[in-house]
Design a protein around this nucleic acid. Structure first.
Lengths: 233, 233
DNA sequence: TATTATGAATGATATAAAACAATAATATCT
DNA sequence: AGATATTATTGTTTTATATCATTCATAATA
């Protein structure tokens, strides 16, 4: 579905303040980035990128919410992140094998802005600050992946679920009280457990007074306890 | 222990052909890289980098073998790679928080060459090809981490051990017949299982005629079968 | 409003893999 | 070479977690 142009998104110049990476660029460089740029609105559930297809664009969501996930064996997904506006993605394939290495799909109706990777490459060769910032961006993803590896391989379910709740609260909903717009299945995909286990442990947390739970509505009552659970194995 | 200078390693100019990243550099850029560069020999078991300390250097092994691993909870390690000569490392911290995010220790006596990160940064700003190559290097690590995440979270022990055997054969020993210089404990750290499980499954593979096993000596008899095991969950 | 889908909750059972324990085989040191 | 430490093997038990099965609740649709 095509999006009507609005005065908030006519060109990169007008929305560059939204992403730290773009604020490093000159007008001329922004003009390059803006060339062939397009924006598309996705309905809930639709794929924004599909793992395995050609990676031709660096993408940024300007509105809505999406999930980034690895497609594993037997339709089992591992969710990497929930993506909110101004977070840049496109992944490691952009500079290696020109394939997307994960899928991204819309959790709510989502507008996404597509910037051609050729233009990104042009600018990165013109602007060393931008090149360094991209390298930093890539490195930060590397650090996150290390944390994920340790969390998923060395913590058991309670710790992993605590990690998810803290992530949702701190990084996504910016509140200790939030209304989930993801399913138990998806909570399981974030913490590598079945939906049944996710349900069960949420209930346990409620019984232990750590959270207040009303299906989709979650209230973190004891954040220190969650942090302690997160630290245990 | 300091290493005597030899005619094979007086400066980066003389060993630049060893690493694809260095072949992109001009003499002047190599001279910058070579400034304050030093080489140290580590004994078996010694730390080359220690997770959590300041990351000040990009490092390359010129001789020997080392292991790169994440230190997790309760002294439980997760080995990321075995490092052999000319593989560059230093990790995601070099461009983010200036901390090493993993440890590297010598499996055999190992010589390592330390290049100041300030010099790397200087050169990356001078040479867009090098900048792009570093970004590619970082991205490739990202791809490997995705594969690792899926392998460790979605495969069970037989599949994970098959992955390790194939990795050792293809990437490290370059033969289907090799003499391990790592312990069962370390095989466990590569595949996220206990040393007892590693022993047991190696034995099972032997009984199934997939490998020939004599403690440290391993012979892959049925590589297709290992690949098939690797694909299953 | 009745009727399907879809998601959530809960219980019973099965199983992969860790933890524990003990012995056997190597390697290292004196 | 003998003594000690490290590593490998093997068996038994325990536990975390998946799987299966069913009911309940909520949302979408006719």
């Amino acid at each position: 579905m095509l999006k009507r142009r609005t005065d908030t998104c006519i060109s990169c110049e007008t929305c560059n303040e939204r992403s730290p990476l773009f604020s490093l660029l000159s007008s001329e460089e922004l003009r390059i980035m803006n060339t062939n740029r397009f924006e598309v609105v996705f309905n809930t559930g639709e794929n924004i990128v599909k793992q395995g297809t050609s990676s031709t664009h660096m993408i940024m969501i300007t509105n809505g919410m999406a999930k980034m996930y690895l497609e594993g064996f037997d339709k089992k997904n591992l969710m990497l992140e929930i993506i909110t506006p101004w977070k840049l993605f496109g992944g490691p394939g952009l500079f290696t094998d020109y394939r997307y290495h994960y899928s991204v799909s819309a959790i709510t109706e989502t507008s996404a802005c597509f910037i051609s990777i050729d233009n990104v490459r042009k600018v990165l060769r013109l602007n060393p600050d931008f090149a360094e910032a991209l390298l930093k961006h890539c490195s930060q993803n590397g650090v996150s992946n290390f944390q994920r590896l340790i969390s998923l391989t060395q913590k058991q379910m309670h710790g992993r679920l605590a990690d998810v709740l803290l992530y949702l609260s701190e990084k996504i909903y910016h509140s200790e009280h939030f209304n989930l717009n993801i399913t138990r299945q998806e909570i399981g995909e974030m913490s590598n457990m079945t939906k049944e286990s996710a349900t069960r442990i949420l209930k346990e947390f409620e019984l232990a007074g750590i959270i207040k739970l009303d299906t989709k509505e979650i209230n973190l009552l004891d954040v220190p306890k969650l942090k302690q659970l997160s630290l245990h194995g």
